[in-house]
């Protein structure tokens, strides 16, 4: 029998690292087999790390204060009780649809002065031009959802509506989607009327799609990624892979 057929099983090596003796024949093999030795070394170092760990090594909860310091240094919005309290005075001149979707993110961002101008003035003049070295803040998130796989499918993702100078965009990030013939297409669906708008093909793990002007996101609230056959038929294939409903 060749040596490769008799390598020690992984879990036996793990237990040897924990101090459990291997059966004799297996022990003889391991002591003369570089591959099993290398494997055993890994387990031994894992066990050594484990034995040197203590309850003080268990991470607790992330500190809110450190997060605020990070957000502050990067100039991005932090939601706090105080900023939420300032809502009514800050968010003005936006459509009712927009107001319905305005989030604490948006509010906090406008309070912080990051998107205030883009929101409150027509044309979205760029702000922060006085701070050329400042990092560009990511656009504010208006609504978001995670995307979950439908039965018969796998994959996961997240979708967010962000506000940009050119208008709202849907940002879709996915991973490990079921594969099949054809391509992925992103849709916004009205769950009441079942009307839907195809936004375009998703060719990568991530894509950005402009939201058509006037599309009411409180109505077209479901983000859907479908697998579309290359048949030239623009209608939804009904083969949805992942889906989620946007919320503010």
């Amino acid at each position: 029998m060749s040596q490769s057929e008799m390598h020690a099983p992984d879990d036996l090596l793990a237990m040897q690292a924990m101090g459990e003796a291997l059966p004799d024949a297996m022990g003889r093999h391991v002591s003369s087999c570089p591959q099993c030795q290398a494997e055993l070394d890994q387990w031994t170092s894992l066990v050594a790390s484990g034995r040197s760990s203590s309850p003080d090594d268990v991470p607790g909860d992330p500190s809110e204060r450190v997060w605020e310091a990070i957000a502050d240094e990067l100039g991005i919005g932090v939601v706090t009780k105080e900023t939420e309290a300032e809502t009514p005075a800050q968010v003005v001149n936006i459509s009712s649809a927009r107001r319905r979707w305005s989030t604490s993110w948006l509010v906090a961002a406008s309070v912080a002065g990051i998107v205030g101008g883009a929101l409150l003035t027509a044309g979205g003049t760029a702000l922060n031009s006085s701070e050329p070295s400042a990092p560009v803040a990511a656009p504010p998130v208006i609504a978001s959802t995670s995307l979950a796989a439908l039965p018969q499918h796998q994959g996961a993702g997240a979708a967010t509506i962000v506000e940009t100078d050119e208008g709202d965009e849907l940002v879709v990030d996915v991973s490990d989607l079921s594969t099949g013939d054809g391509f992925y297409e992103v849709w916004l669906i009205d769950p009441e009327t079942f009307q839907m708008v195809g936004l375009g093909a998703l060719v990568d793990d991530s894509g950005r799609f402009p939201i058509p002007d006037g599309l009411d996101l409180s109505q077209y609230s479901v983000v859907d990624v479908s697998l579309e056959p290359l048949d030239g038929d623009p209608v939804h294939s009904t083969d949805s892979v992942v889906r989620g409903e946007l919320s503010a």
Partner: peptide
């Protein structure tokens, strides 16, 4: 809102499974 679909819009039945709405 009069929705003008600049891309393409179609009325179709929802894909088989109910929406995971919350």
């Amino acid at each position: 809102l009069v929705i003008d679909f600049p891309l393409r819009a179609t009325v179709v039945d929802m894909p088989t499974d109910p929406l995971p709405l919350d």
